[in-house]
């Protein structure tokens, strides 16, 4: 019985598969819920608490998009994805948006037919070594054994870096961050390499963080950002400008504290357009005029999200660095809202 039902569905599905491409916004609204792909668990970026409520830096993007589109930041179905399944899950419509600390690269953007809509975290790959090793620069790691997560861009960067510097290394393949920490602490590898944000969180969780140092070299550019399927530009625009709205809100000084007040009208016309007090930006991509206000209300502006999830007051303690506003010497620069 099950088989015939199964194949019957398959045949029926084949006939309508052609319509799958367009209309993510309609799908999401009809469903009343945003399917958001997140990490299965990465400290600070995406983690469920004991009650299954997700929170984190990437999760905040999901919440903002859901708030903008559906009016409720809680109308999100979080789909935990692994490093191997994340892009397939997006391409196959299992999820509407992927916010899973994924690096924006040429092949992922072009060859995998995905669209990165922006960058929410500028990361870079670094190395952590035990202090006892007596190494102070990544250039001194010739011949070292290095723990490296498979299926990630870090794996490729590592090969490039050692090749460029005429050095050799023996990789120890690991599957997850937890396994990497364990191998590193057990002495299976001399150095552990992953994104610098991950290294900071890992080091902070060690019993004696001061016994380990993060080497100064950052060997790669890892612009991490949310992405959507290729070919649905309206949906891509919504996610892109939701992210931009969060970044712009920080630039213009819109916080969750003064959001209500500013949305009554302000002296800055750009704020008025962003919060929908004037102009009609929202209807241009099929939302109402208060979309950005709701997105900001979900968990605050970019700076607030950063401070609450991975910033210096959290145990992870990441400095803003490259992720400061362009006015503060960082790389965050959103196009104008007009």
């Amino acid at each position: 019985m099950k088989k015939s039902l199964f194949f019957g569905t398959l045949t029926a599905a084949g006939m309508v598969a052609g319509f799958a491409a367009a209309g993510t916004l309609e799908d999401v609204v009809a469903r009343g819920e945003l399917n958001c792909g997140v990490n299965t668990g990465l400290v600070g970026f995406a983690a469920p608490d004991a009650n299954g409520n997700w929170s984190g830096f990437d999760v905040a993007i999901c919440k903002a998009v859901a708030a903008a589109v559906l009016g409720d930041p809680n109308k999100v179905k979080y789909v935990p994805t692994s490093g191997q399944t994340r892009f397939t899950a997006l391409a196959s419509s299992e999820i509407d948006v992927l916010a899973r600390n994924s690096t924006w690269t040429f092949t992922r953007d072009v060859d995998l037919k995905l669209d990165f809509v922006g960058v929410n975290y500028y990361d870079g790959q670094g190395f952590m070594v035990p202090k006892a090793l007596g190494v102070s620069s990544a250039k001194e790691l010739d011949g070292a054994t290095i723990c490296i997560q498979t299926g990630t861009t870090t794996e490729l960067n590592l090969a490039d870096f050692f090749k460029a510097n005429n050095m050799t290394y023996s990789p120890i393949a690991i599957d997850s961050n937890a396994e990497g920490e364990q191998q590193y602490l057990a002495g299976a590898c001399d150095a552990y390499t992953t994104d610098a944000s991950g290294l900071a969180a890992t080091r902070a969780a060690f019993a004696t963080p001061s016994d380990h140092i993060i080497l100064p070299e950052i060997i790669s550019k890892e612009p991490l950002g949310p992405l959507v399927r290729h070919g649905d530009n309206q949906w891509g625009d919504i996610v892109r400008w939701t992210l931009n709205a969060l970044i712009a809100a920080e630039e213009y000084g819109i916080t969750s504290a003064n959001l209500e007040e500013l949305s009554k009208g302000s002296s800055n016309p750009e704020i008025d357009r962003l919060l929908g007090t004037s102009g009609d930006l929202g209807p241009m991509f099929g939302l109402d005029n208060l979309w950005a206000k709701r997105a900001i209300a979900a968990s605050g502006n970019y700076g607030e999200i950063f401070a609450a999830t991975i910033g210096e007051s959290t145990p992870i303690g990441l400095a803003r660095g490259l992720n400061a506003q362009w006015t503060q010497g960082g790389l965050l620069y959103t196009p104008p809202f007009r």
Binding site: L10, A13, G14, F19, G23, R31, A89, S92, S93, E94
Partner: peptide
């Protein structure tokens, strides 16, 4: 399992809740 979770979605009509 991969077929069940990912490949099927290419064939099923969008919005199908299987």
């Amino acid at each position: 399992l991969f077929v069940a979770s990912l490949l099927l979605n290419y064939f099923l009509p969008p919005g199908t809740n299987f």
